[in-house]
Amino acid sequence: MTTPLVDMRDICISFGGVHAVDHVSVDLHAGEVVGLLGHNGAGKSTLIKILSGAYQADSGEIRIGGDKVDITNPRDARAHKIETIYQTLALADNLDASSNLFLGRELITRFGLVDDDAMEAETRKIMGRLNPNFQKFAEPVSALSGGQRQSVAIARAVYFDARILIMDEPMAALGPHETQMVAELIEQLKSEGIGIFLISHDIHDVMELCDRASVMKNGKLVGTVDVNDVTDDDLLSMIILGKQPGAKSA
């Protein structure tokens, strides 16, 4: 078996006595999409924030390409080419699209000043690819629609040659047409060998887009399954009852 791209082993984190993530292990291979499922508060987002550097695990280890790594802040995660699309999108509403896309990684001129024109040109290029209808480059992102804001957040994650992409509810704010675009994008990124963690509430999305699914409940891992081996109902019962498929209750 090949070395996984990401291997999170035995991760624990608690907040004020509540075990938000309790001895959870998940892994992700290159060119694979792994769905993370579970109710609100099951610990999916917390687990993923440990990988993206927003939180630090109390115990457990993260391996990337087989090497143990320390991710203590979002900069470390970016250095390992981990990019995250947060559910909240994490955009500074008062800045324009290109300032958000390059936030923390601004292009600079030879005088060390921020090169807004160059960043806008790059933003126009990538948006032309992701969302050709997007034209609001000068406005603050607060003036954009939900779908447009989403495409800015996605552009930020894919622009910097991510190897590992974390998508937290990427379709939650989108209409059918935009959802289709995100689905196509996931297929394309997958074919480029990028590993993707997809957090979703929607079982159909997971069945359609993911290769495997890991289900969490109350901070614990219920199990990880190959989506081809299970039905929608199996996944549902994992989410709701916290039971592995096949392990019928007595």
Binding site: N73, A92, L95, S99, G104
Partner: peptide, 17 residues
């Protein structure tokens, strides 16, 4: 740029590293 980003969304700025 970081000053204005922080003013617009402190959490997002932190998450941007």
């Amino acid at each position: 740029r970081y000053i204005f980003a922080t003013g617009g969304n402190p959490e997002a700025t932190e998450l941007a590293g």
